[in-house]
Design a protein around this nucleic acid. Sequence first.
DNA 1: CTTGACCTTACCATGATGGGAAGGATTATC
DNA 2: GATAATCCTTCCCATCATGGTAAGGTCAAG
Lengths: 145, 145
Amino acid sequence: MNIGDAAKASGVSAKMIRYYEQIGLIPPAGRTGAGYRVYTQTDVQMLRFIRRARDLGFQVEAISELLALWRDRSRHSADVKRLAEDQIAGLRRRIAEMESMVATLDHLARGCSGDDRPDCPILDDLEGDRSLVVPACHAGAGFNR
Amino acid sequence: MNIGDAAKASGVSAKMIRYYEQIGLIPPAGRTGAGYRVYTQTDVQMLRFIRRARDLGFQVEAISELLALWRDRSRHSADVKRLAEDQIAGLRRRIAEMESMVATLDHLARGCSGDDRPDCPILDDLEGDRSLVVPACHAGAGFNR
DNA sequence: CTTGACCTTACCATGATGGGAAGGATTATC
DNA sequence: GATAATCCTTCCCATCATGGTAAGGTCAAG
């Protein structure tokens, strides 16, 4: 199977398959005499695994660890679970940050007449002085990416 | 005021100030005879504006529009409100995506024993075959918890 | 044997940010 | 005033995962 077929079968673009090989996420594919990469059903299965992990927001580094566990028949499911929970925690952290932004924006937008007059609490707030950030809740905060 | 002072006063790093100038988000700063950039209080205020907008997740492109409206004394607050609402909508979209990931991961992790045995529904799911993605929706209702 | 679809590598771009090097300017200390 | 420390300048590189393009080789069908 050529790279294009593997791409179609796995949902990972040919471009990304080459990239994953280049960075060592997947082992180098076999090659035909002419240099074409060749893929087996097993390779496609691995690519689909990567695709699904990516869809769950895992970064390549984490996917690499997941793949290693997948291949390790003597793995401990605790290790897999920990990766999943780390991922959940990271997602929740980012969700909380964004929810805090939404709360602030929503608060500001609600106070904006949204007509043809120039007065606007949104700009007033960005302009500073006031600290803004809807007292909201709590929300986590910070930043970090 | 030199760039370092402007950075401290605005919360935007010197590196980013130069970058914002380079991409045209802010006008070129004045220069001393020796080529040092010089900043006024007005410049610092603009940088703070940018910093706050960035903290609310606005992209540079949107910040550019916000700055234009900020400077336009005959602006219509409706235009500002629209930018804010677009931002809210974008954030909510991303939040929804991530919540969907969390729902799926949470569902899978809950089914994983997390001990020293290798069996793991998380890997089974990534492996494929089953479509996974917690049917979800959220639904708050029902299902577990 | 030509055409078109596919493959290869190599380079560039993204967005916002940081790091570092090489060298000049300014400031503080002796 | 000399020297050292700090600041500034520009330029280049790296991130992360992805896409685009270009130049050229390969393969299968007509």
